[in-house]
Design a protein around this nucleic acid. Structure first.
Length: 322
DNA sequence: AACGCATACAACCGCATGGAA
DNA sequence: ATTCCATGCGGTTGTATGCGT
């Protein structure tokens, strides 16, 4: 059956989003919550495909996104998880709640892949490469064994699977013990856990105005003025005042409530679908175990599943100790 | 200053998946 | 069981920006 396009190609705008569009989208989502994306273009007047709206929200505007340079720990985490999980960017992103899968994917493709390649030529950080290669070998053998399972006898396959499961445990251990304690998973208490999208837009606008001559390509001067006018008329701010405050004032939502995990409308969008459960680490690991099981066992070999399901992170008190 | 090339990243596209009708 | 739809995901592309010549 042929599927109709997600949106009418005619009259649908493409390309970079303007600050006005961002504001419209954020305002809408703030009022209605994320989801029902099909309604967004019609309800907001945005001449964008629903998919584009969703992507813009999830990859750029939603609360809790951290942009900018990746830390060394994040980098290491990504390398290990990529080796462990492959290009499952969403799964990897679920372990870096402040990063989007798209960001991680881009970072991998532009920085890390190159970096690893370079390092593999032979230089420092051998441990990183080692871990990556080990994990990769372990898992590629897992997956390849899955794909080539038809060539093996059942006994061989099951034996191989058991080995793979064991290796997966080790790899998982390696991957999750990057930084002594997995504090990536737990939002910092001392700072706002989920910077609001007002912040994101504020940053956007700051950069936007800073580079206004170039930005005029994607947004006219008058539109900037409109945005600024909207901000100043609402909050009567003068230039130099933090724009995020202006946005808070404009939209009438507060950082803490907007980005709060308690806010049901947004908690679901704070992380990727699996992300929300990571507030509870035990649940997170159960989730990960299940996911891992599904991946390696493909839901076919219950024996392996049973074996791995018996493994408990609680059984290994030193699991996160290096 | 101008040009060309390289890089980074936002956005798009197409397919997969799961749930509802 | 089938179809349809919304959403998620990963690969790819387009373009702005940086940098060297």
């Amino acid at each position: 059956m042929g599927r109709p396009p997600c949106c009418d190609k005619l009259g649908v705008k493409k390309g970079p989003w303007t600050p006005e569009e961002d504001i419209m989208l954020v305002t809408y989502v703030q009022q209605h919550g994320p989801g029902n994306w099909r309604q967004v273009p019609t309800n907001t007047g945005l001449r964008r495909c629903s998919k584009s709206c969703r992507l813009r929200w999830t990859n750029y505007l939603r609360p809790g996104i951290r942009r900018g340079d990746f830390t060394a720990d994040e980098e290491k985490m990504i390398i290990q998880l990529q080796a462990l999980l492959g290009n499952k960017w969403a799964a990897i992103a679920s372990y870096l709640p402040e990063r989007t899968d798209n960001d991680i994917k881009n970072y991998w493709n532009t920085h890390l892949k190159k970096k690893l390649k370079k390092l593999q030529m032979g230089s420092d950080e051998q441990d990183l490469i080692q871990v990556h290669n080990n994990n990769k070998d372990q898992f590629t053998s897992s997956t390849s064994s899955s794909s080539s399972s038809h060539c093996m006898s059942k006994g061989q396959w099951e034996k191989r699977l058991q080995t793979d499961i064991h290796m997966a445990k080790q790899a998982l251990n390696d991957a999750l013990s990057v930084d002594h304690k997995p504090n990536f998973f737990v939002p910092q208490v001392t700072k706002p856990s989920y910077p609001s999208s007002t912040d994101n837009i504020a940053k956007l606008l700051k950069g936007f105005m800073k580079n206004s001559p170039k930005s005029n390509k994607i947004c006219s001067k008058s539109s900037i003025d409109e945005v600024n006018a909207a901000i100043s008329s609402e909050s009567k701010i003068s230039s130099g005042v933090d724009l995020s405050e202006a946005f808070e004032s404009l939209f009438g939502f507060d950082k803490s409530t907007f980005g709060s995990p308690e806010n049901s409308d947004f908690s679901q969008s704070n992380t990727s679908p699996e992300g929300s459960i990571f507030q509870d680490e035990s649940k997170r690991f159960t989730m990960f175990e299940n996911w891992l099981l599904d991946e390696i066992a493909g839901g076919v070999v219950d024996q392996g599943k049973e074996e791995l399901s018996h493994f408990s992170f609680d059984e290994s008190p030193d699991f996160f100790d290096n």
